[in-house]
Simulated scan of single mutants.
Amino acid sequence: MSDSLGDGRGGPTVAQMRLYERWAAGGLALSIIGEVQGSPDFAEKPGNLVLNAQSDTERFRELARRGSANNAHLWLQLGHAGAMADAPISTPKGPSALDLPGLSCGALTLAEIQHLPGAFAQTARRAQELGFGGVEIHAAHGFLLSQFLSPLFNKRADAYGGSLGNRMRLLLETVAAVRRAVGPDFPVGLKLNATDQLEGGFQQDEALEVIAALDSTGIDLIDISGGTYFPGAPSSSDRAGSGPYFADFAGRARTRTSVPLMVTGGFKTRQQAEATLASGKADLIGLARALVVDPDLPSKWIKGAADAPRLPRFEDPPEGGVTAWYTMQITQIANGEGGLSPSDLAAAIAEYAQRDRLRHAIWSDHFRR
């Protein structure tokens, strides 16, 4: 999840350290911090972390130490928002130039594209040196590597566009560069959309081909998700049914790869998680919103409790409103405060927006944008 708890200068905060320490205490095996940028140029939000040569490495070391309490792993999710980069603090660029309602971006040059695998690899190596348990390359949810896979975003006519083989080229080059940088034993995962859930976009059959291509790359985990933050597009969690969203797709993917699979999205009961594992469709279960409303859920399930988290229901929330509510609920956990109620939605949206406005100014001043 994107916790949005960075200090606005790309650095970890004490609240962020408390959050991952708290989740570790709740019994989970692995936390993944999204997103962590290698540079400040294409951040998803001003609360993202930036890990580069100018970072406060001691704060990152402390985050790694505290997030790995109780034998948990803490991985950094390596991100690049591309066309979805936060416009107040960046100049969005994607595979191709776009001028659509709510989304405008330039096109990356060939030289800029060819620079990316090494940049991801450098960030991964820094994460390894600072004591994090692994990294996850983010190729889902409409961010840059996902954009290259999608024919809606990728209109290129060179070696990185057109056929699926060309559209997955940057992803495979990035995985290879990261693996070379960290060696054979450091965990490297990848988050991949089963589908971006947009008409004419990246579809399940194409995702299966990408998964097959990843099978021989030395990747350690494929984290299956779906959907995109394309303006106006509903998220998977806002429009899917009551059960896991991508478990059936994972069953299809299982026939195409020997890499361990994690399925994220829609798991609300212990029975759902156990059934998916027992079916062989997945090896790990990813929890997001369930952990935001109950940080102790893994421990409860391990002890045999069948409790389902009480997820809030909202009446006609505005676009982005539910994300704002959950993000501010994450902040409540990080600060050791009580939970929000659905009636707090308007206040959470306002606080979320105000915090970003303040950090936009901090980010721009710090990085001299």
Results as ranks from 00 to 15, higher is better:
S68Y: 00
Q271V: 10
L108C: 11
P95G: 13
K281N: 14
T255K: 13
L63V: 06
S235G: 13
Y20I: 08
P187K: 04
F246Q: 10
E129H: 10
A324S: 10
H138C: 04
S104Y: 03
G133M: 05
K268I: 02
S104C: 07
F246R: 03
G241H: 09
G218E: 03
L145M: 02
S2D: 15
G162M: 01
E112S: 11
E62D: 12
D41Y: 07
D86E: 15
R359K: 14
G27I: 10
E62G: 09
G320A: 03
A288C: 14
G304Q: 10
L110R: 15
L170N: 04
E173C: 14
M1I: 09
G102K: 12
S235Y: 07
R126Q: 15
L110G: 15
Y326Q: 00
F60K: 04
E315T: 14
Q203G: 11
P88W: 07
L19H: 05
L358A: 14
H80G: 07
F60Q: 00
S242L: 13
N48G: 03
G226C: 02
P244R: 13
L291D: 00
G11E: 15
P298N: 11
G304V: 09
A346M: 09
S163P: 07
L287R: 01
P40N: 06
A85K: 00
I362T: 15
